[in-house]
Design a protein around this nucleic acid. Structure first.
Length: 487
RNA sequence: GCCGCCGUAGCUCAGCUGGUUAGAGCGCUUGACUGUGGAUCAAGAGGUCGGCGAUUCGAAUUCGCCCGGCGGUACCA
């Protein structure tokens, strides 16, 4: 009876697709967010915050027939048996916000927003169940100028983050053109919804699969390297040819498809966006028309855009990585109408912050610069902790990151701790120094450079990295050490 | 979801066709060592061999199912 049953212990583990964020990553991300924010602010967008949780039906992911939300969103019921969901993007909450506050808002309403979003999907390479988006949207403007401006914003933002011209491209297309093309191969009408979606998905994969892959998807279907089969759209060869021709070239769009009124409208809009961008100095290396851009199938109604890094990116083993788009967006004129019944034009872009950061780091734009740790005040005499605390406080008062060693270890352990924290130097005051009213300041950065062969020599040299100063001059001497190792 | 590859210590891996108490390097803790990071030396901690079941006298090793990871693919607001 002496042996009690082990208490059931939870396993310390992280749900898949979610990640802890280290100090270095947080610093890198925050630096990046600050730059993005700066650009967005300069365009006049105002910040907005909305909660992570919304009613599922407001997000538009409620399945009325099944009485529960879409599987792709994390959902749960509140006390009133109402379905709530974690937001899966920042656009749906914006639509809700605008609809709810419509009378109060200046129109056009232009806001930016940054925050985590969640998707309950299988995680993959560069694909998580929580990730950060940084959005800018203009609500209440139907003009192509609003769309053009977002493309320019995307370009400016990437450049502000250090992506050079030629290392990125903003690609623009228009859903109306796509609709017109589909119509011109007799895929209009309700009967062809399935086929239309299949064709759009195939077009979207042109980048990755090339002409051959797309052709397979348009026709009978495609088998990938692992042997998995994707069903094709079942188009005739003639239809498929037209689609492939369309995707392959942006020339002669009007001649080929202009007879369809929707397509003509879309082409007008595309040309207008391009004209505005060119007038503002954004050339064809930065903003281009790309017929293969499709984007989300559910709500985009006109122009769609995406930006990608064109510079080659490789993983640790040197294998090239297909990063995908780092900015995406488009016009969604029907999203607010869902709530109000009134048509409100809107257009926006979304930066995939996590993915972009990954890409930037791969391109060497954003090293996780190991930030300098705090100055550590060592504890030699336990009963003199108040004195040590005072020294740490004096350093803080002088705007120097400093901490008292709070562990239990001996001097050696404390040195090791300071080393690991990346401390530039430590402050030491034992009985000898105290007696003379002095402190030792040991320069750890310099000390590390003096690693000699044998112990005696090492210890001797170590002393060179250590200065003895009057206690009253602690702050200025620490500051001198810090200055020595800046940058 | 589908297809493929992989699961042995904190990390990287070894363990031949089944055969005593499962190993190495790195890392970690302690000491040699003084009131001082590194190096060296010594000692130590750390493993349900992913889990369950089957075959067998005997399974880390063979087979089945499950779980997890990676990659591809599908879906993707």
């Amino acid at each position: 009876m002496s042996k009690k049953t082990e208490p059931a212990r939870p396993e310390a583990r992280l749900p898949k697709g979610l990640f802890d964020v280290s100090a270095g990553e947080i610093r890198a991300t925050e630096g990046m967010l600050a730059k993005i924010r700066g650009v967005f602010e300069s365009y006049g967008f105002e910040p907005l915050g909305t909660p992570a949780i919304e009613y599922s039906d407001a997000l538009g992911k409620f399945l009325p027939d099944q009485d529960r939300p879409n599987e792709g969103v994390f959902s749960f019921k509140d006390d009133d048996e109402q379905w709530l969901s974690l937001r899966y993007d920042l656009t749906a909450p914006l639509a809700r916000y605008v609809a709810e506050n419509y009378q109060r808002l200046p129109k056009p309403f232009r806001r930016y927003q940054v925050g985590p979003v969640w998707r309950n999907e299988k995680p993959g390479p560069g694909r998580y169940r929580q990730f950060t988006q940084f959005d800018a949207d203009t609500v209440g403007a139907s003009s192509a100028a609003a769309d053009a401006e977002l493309c320019m914003l995307a370009a400016d933002t990437l450049e502000a983050l250090g992506v050079e011209r030629g290392q990125y491209v903003v690609k623009v297309n228009n859903r109306k053109v796509l609709d017109g093309v589909l119509e011109s191969i007799d895929l209009g009408g309700d009967a062809n919804v399935g086929k239309r979606l299949a064709v759009l998905r195939a077009i979207d994969k042109y980048d990755r699969l090339g002409e051959e892959g797309v052709r397979a998807l348009l026709g009978k279907g495609r088998k990938d390297e692992s042997g998995d089969v994707t069903k094709g759209a079942g188009l005739t060869e003639k239809q498929a040819n037209l689609i492939v021709d369309y995707v392959r070239t942006v020339e002669n769009l009007r001649e080929t498809f202009g007879s369809a009124p929707i397509a003509a409208k879309g082409i007008d809009e595309l040309e207008e966006i391009l004209k505005l961008a060119r007038a503002a100095g954004y050339d064809e290396k930065r903003i281009v028309i790309d017929s293969s851009v499709v984007r989300g199938l559910e709500y985009y109604t006109g122009p769609v855009f995406e930006a990608e890094l064109t510079a080659p990116i490789a993983d640790d083993k040197g294998q090239p990585i297909r990063l995908g788009s780092v900015v995406s967006g488009g016009r969604y004129d029907g999203l607010i109408e869902r709530f109000t019944g009134e048509k409100v034009p809107a257009t926006g872009i979304s930066i995939g912050v996590s993915r972009l950061l990954f890409g930037l780091q791969r391109l060497g734009k954003y090293g996780e610069s190991a930030t300098q740790g705090p100055v550590v005040v060592l504890v030699l005499d336990r009963d003199r902790i108040p004195d040590y605390q005072k020294m740490a406080q004096a350093l803080r008062a002088a705007n120097i990151r400093a901490e008292l060693y709070l562990g239990e270890g001996g001097l050696k352990a404390q040195m090791k701790y300071a080393d690991r924290r990346g401390a530039p130097c430590v402050v030491i005051q034992g009985g000898y120094e105290k007696a003379k009213g002095e402190v030792q300041i040991k320069d750890l950065v310099l000390g590390a450079k003096l690693t000699a062969l044998d112990r005696d020599e090492y210890l001797k040299k170590q002393e060179e990295a250590q200065i003895l100063v009057p206690e009253a001059q602690l702050v200025e001497n620490v500051r001198a050490v810090l200055a020595r190792h800046k940058g």
